[in-house]
Design a protein around this nucleic acid. Structure first.
Length: 103
DNA sequence: AGACTGACTCCAA
DNA sequence: GTTGGAGCCAGTC
């Protein structure tokens, strides 16, 4: 088990309802600032197995990277259920981004 | 074992 | 605003 993967999973579990984090942010907190893609890979591999709040993870623009995969609608629905509002297909990162002290 | 892919992000031009 | 390149590393073949 890589430390990175464990940290990513742990970090995602700390995101509270109604907040989101970007891939890059999680990668930074997990120890590899530029390993955003790996965060995505871990999500894909664990989204069904673990209780990961993968829907609270968005890209740096505040958009859903899942849209091209075909389940962007699901993610958007899950986020809306947490009182997150989308405008022009994006959400307000300045408002919804979850920040950890260790950043 | 090697080679390729990709739910990303940053930066230069 | 766009495009291209580099970096990162877990999966997959």
């Amino acid at each position: 088990m890589s430390e990175f993967k464990d940290l990513v999973i742990k970090i995602i579990k700390t995101i509270p309802k109604g907040k989101v984090m970007t891939y890059g942010q999680i990668a930074t907190l997990a120890g590899s600032p530029r390993a955003a893609r790996q965060v995505a890979a871990i999500l894909r591999a664990n989204s069904e197995a673990e209780e990961l709040a993968w829907h609270r993870v968005v890209n740096a623009e505040g958009k859903l990277s899942t849209h091209k995969l075909g389940f962007g609608d699901l993610q958007e629905a899950l986020l809306k259920r947490e009182e997150i509002v989308f405008k022009s297909g994006k959400l307000d990162l300045g408002k919804y981004r979850w920040r950890l002290e260790s950043e």
